[in-house]
């Protein structure tokens, strides 16, 4: 069942000017789709261009090339400047402090996008108060929160406020740009559950951007792995995490420590045995962006840019040596069934 994608990005390139009239390509020919009700996770390290993709989709950064379609219509990348926003796309930012205006009450903050939308569409604004109260309840905040100021709330509560503000206009797509990265573990769990609940109730799609693979694996249906602005691998969350195809994805997974000292030691020793001396990063051109850190790199990797080739059901990987690499089972210490005390929820 192939449904029409909600969001379709094709050949997206974003350049940033750097000094001396040079330009730096932050995002390079990225394709992605998000289906209705689906969560696409975007993983990458700092500088991989994941937040730039978010900005391009939100229309707050100039796009060098490529198209962004939403519900089949091509979006104007300058729409925010031209004040024709798409309220169907909303955002939750990482920083729970900066994302809320400290001088406005929570009720005002949550109501503002709804009022703006209703005014634009010539609707009645009489119902706003009730909708704000309903939204506060949905995100687990007390009713009297509406009359208080953001500073009176903790980081997790502020993120709930930001989520309420995003959902009040009933968006179809919400971009979560590291939305849980600044939160403590227990608060992060609460917010992840909240995002899952709201998605279930309202049928929204997420573009979920994070550097944390375990978080992305938990919330995403599909995952996109980015490195230096290019897509390295994509596929279902389970297949990317359980059997990563690209050496970079494997490196990312191998570097994340697991909650098991014994297995972690084995993985560490395995990782140490594979370790290569990284060469200086080659300028991005006709080469694989990961070649300088890749232990499987051959000459071709430095001379020719790899294209995405299909791996299985729905996955794709941009690696010249795809098919020649040792299987992931030899590459990582297998996950053992989780112990009963910490993981025994079945």
């Amino acid at each position: 069942m192939k449904t029409e994608p909600l969001l379709q990005v094709e050949g997206l390139c974003v350049d940033y000017p750097v000094r001396r009239r040079r330009r730096f390509r932050a995002v390079d020919s990225v394709d992605l789709t998000v289906a209705p009700g689906e969560t696409l996770g975007v993983v990458g390290e700092s500088g991989s261009g994941k937040s730039t993709i978010a900005k391009a989709i939100l229309g707050i950064t100039p796009v060098t090339a490529g198209t962004i379609r939403f519900e089949g219509r091509e979006l104007d990348p300058r729409r925010v400047r031209r004040r024709k926003p798409i309220t169907d796309i909303q955002v939750v930012f990482q920083d729970p402090v900066s994302s809320l205006d400290p001088t406005k009450t929570v009720g005002h903050t949550i109501a503002e996008p709804l009022v703006a939308k209703l005014r634009r569409e010539g609707g009645e604004t009489g119902d706003v108060r009730r909708q704000v109260a309903e939204m506060l309840d949905r995100v687990g905040l007390p009713e009297n929160a509406a009359s208080r100021y953001p500073a009176q709330f903790s980081g997790g509560q502020r993120q709930r406020i930001a989520i309420a503000r995003a959902f009040i206009v009933r968006p179809r797509l919400v971009v979560c740009d590291e939305a849980v990265s600044a939160l403590d573990l227990s608060v992060q769990a609460q917010i992840l559950n909240l995002l899952t609940d709201v998605q279930r109730d309202l049928g929204v799609s997420y573009l979920f951007i994070s550097h944390d693979l375990s978080v992305v694996e938990h919330v995403s249906d599909r995952v996109l792995v980015l490195y230096r602005g290019r897509v390295m691998e994509t596929g279902s969350a389970a297949s990317v995490v359980q059997s990563p195809q690209h050496p970079y994805t494997r490196a990312l997974l191998a570097a994340a420590p697991v909650h098991d000292p014994l297995r972690q030691r084995q993985r560490r020793e395995l990782r140490a045995s594979y370790r290569i001396e990284p060469k200086a990063a080659a300028p991005l051109g006709d080469s694989c962006p990961f070649a300088h850190r890749c232990r499987f790199a051959v000459d071709r990797c430095l001379q020719e840019r790899p294209v995405l080739q299909p791996t299985g059901a729905d996955g794709a990987v941009a690696c010249h040596r795809h098919g020649e690499l040792p299987s992931d089972a030899e590459d990582d210490v297998p996950r053992e069934p989780r112990s009963t005390a910490t993981g025994g929820s079945k």
């Binding site: 997790g156 227990s186 992840l192 559950n193 938990h218 969350a237 910490t342 929820s345």
Partner: peptide, 22 residues
């Protein structure tokens, strides 16, 4: 509870066992 609230210790597709309150 802190260990359980990590997505790593949660089976995919299940709710994370978050600690209520703060």
């Amino acid at each position: 509870a802190l260990l359980l609230s990590s997505p790593e210790n949660t089976h995919v597709g299940e709710r994370i066992q978050a600690i209520p309150g703060s």
